[in-house]
Amino acid sequence: MRKKREKLLVISSCISRTIGGISNTLYYLVNELAASSDLTILGYLFDEKIDNVNILMKQNRKFLIEEHFRRKVRIWLYSIFKNYSKYDKVLCAAWTEAIAIAFFQRKRPPYYVMVHGNELMGESYLKCRLRDYIINHSEKLFANSEYTKNVCNKKWPSKECAVIHPPIDVTVKKPDREKNDDKFTVITVSRLEKRKGIQYAVKAVARLSKKYPNLVYRIVGGGDYRDTLERLIASHQLEKNIVLVGRVSEGEKYQELANSDLFVMPSFKTENSVEGFGVSYLEANLMGIPVIGTYSGGIPDAVIDGKTGVLIGEKDVDALEKTIEKFINRELQFSSETCIDWAFEHSSKKVAEKYQKELMGI
């Protein structure tokens, strides 16, 4: 007898292929889960349509980050007048999305909460109490790394938590490398914010550029920290060695990675923010290049130290300088195939299979 397809409701205020972060994870996950369940989205889908999915709320306008909280509120208000008891299970992109189920549904179906790291930090007392209530009444948690799981275990020791890494798009074809003469190119692809540690990479390049004038550092991405980085680059007179590329398209991003020899993102933990995993390291690996990360947050889940990259301490310019130099001199060399294979372990299909096993027992 054929097994009945379960009705799954996914709640997310933003699902997108190109915006990045959690929205990107949800996009690839929903595409795969739709093949094995009757899937409905409560939330907003940007960029592209998803086949075989019912969307309860639609968003056709341009994505605006300042609208993020308003979208969540709209989901909560929408849920007051709806009955979700027909769904077998509910997957919430974050604990705040679960408010729609935990408080506005008299007969609520079992709900599962995805946990990413940042949302567990620096909250007010009332927000923590609200979060505790929602988490304690959930069926299970899905953490994006062992670090995030450990944080959950400390906060909610009786709550079951499974680790499932975020997916990446492994269907991307590696672009041909563009000629760059004899230059050694280091790259960072990231939002430009202090926590990403780009300032330490700039300082390391400042030291190395005196010995290796052919060293180039390309910083891809936009953000509020750009002005600070511009001043830092100017103070070291590194305009010929360091390029602030700015925001780029998905295709341009992978071309930048394909043109590079080494990816660097020395993130560090702050009071209110942490790298819960680090998809950017895997995207670099997908292009066959090794990475340098830190022993911070969930980064050790994304980087296999000594195989797909190297892990160093937070804010350690000396270690960063020495490690980059070893790559320049080929004292450190990693197999491109190993890097690519590790990236493929995070295909949306493989990640979705793990969710299917946890949610539906498939």
Rank of each mutant, 00 (worst) to 15 (best):
K315N: 06
K315A: 03
K315P: 06
K315T: 12
K315C: 02
D316N: 04
D316R: 00
D316L: 01
D316T: 00
D316E: 05
V317T: 04
V317W: 06
V317N: 02
V317F: 08
V317K: 01
V317Q: 02
D318G: 02
D318P: 04
D318V: 10
D318M: 09
D318T: 09
A319E: 13
A319K: 05
A319C: 04
A319V: 01
A319G: 04
L320F: 08
L320C: 02
L320P: 00
L320Q: 02
L320A: 03
E321S: 07
E321H: 14
E321M: 04
K322S: 15
K322V: 13
K322R: 11
K322W: 12
K322N: 14
T323D: 02
T323M: 05
T323Q: 00
T323V: 10
I324Y: 02
I324N: 00
I324C: 01
E325V: 08
E325P: 04
E325C: 04
E325F: 11
E325D: 09
E325I: 06
E325N: 03
E325L: 06
E325S: 01
K326N: 14
K326M: 10
K326I: 08
K326Y: 14
K326D: 11
K326P: 10
F327Y: 07
F327E: 03
F327I: 00
F327P: 00
F327N: 01
F327A: 00
F327K: 00
F327S: 00
I328F: 03
I328S: 03
I328Q: 02
N329T: 06
N329R: 15
N329P: 09
N329G: 06
N329W: 11
N329S: 14
N329M: 14
N329D: 13
R330D: 13
R330I: 03
R330E: 14
R330L: 09
E331W: 06
E331N: 05
L332F: 12
L332I: 15
L332N: 08
L332W: 08
L332Y: 14
L332T: 10
L332G: 02
L332Q: 06
Q333A: 13
Q333P: 06
F334R: 03
F334Y: 15
F334V: 13
F334I: 10
F334E: 07
F334A: 07
F334Q: 04
S335Q: 11
S335E: 15
S335L: 10
S335M: 09
S336D: 07
S336Y: 10
S336H: 09
S336N: 06
S336F: 07
E337G: 07
E337W: 08
E337K: 12
E337H: 11
E337Q: 14
E337S: 07
E337A: 09
E337R: 08
T338K: 13
T338N: 08
T338Y: 13
T338V: 11
T338D: 14
C339W: 06
C339Q: 05
C339T: 03
C339F: 09
I340F: 09
I340Y: 05
I340T: 02
I340Q: 04
I340G: 03
I340L: 08
I340M: 06
D341Q: 13
D341T: 09
D341L: 14
D341E: 15
D341W: 13
W342M: 09
W342Y: 15
W342D: 12
W342H: 12
W342C: 08
A343R: 05
A343H: 02
A343V: 09
F344C: 08
F344P: 05
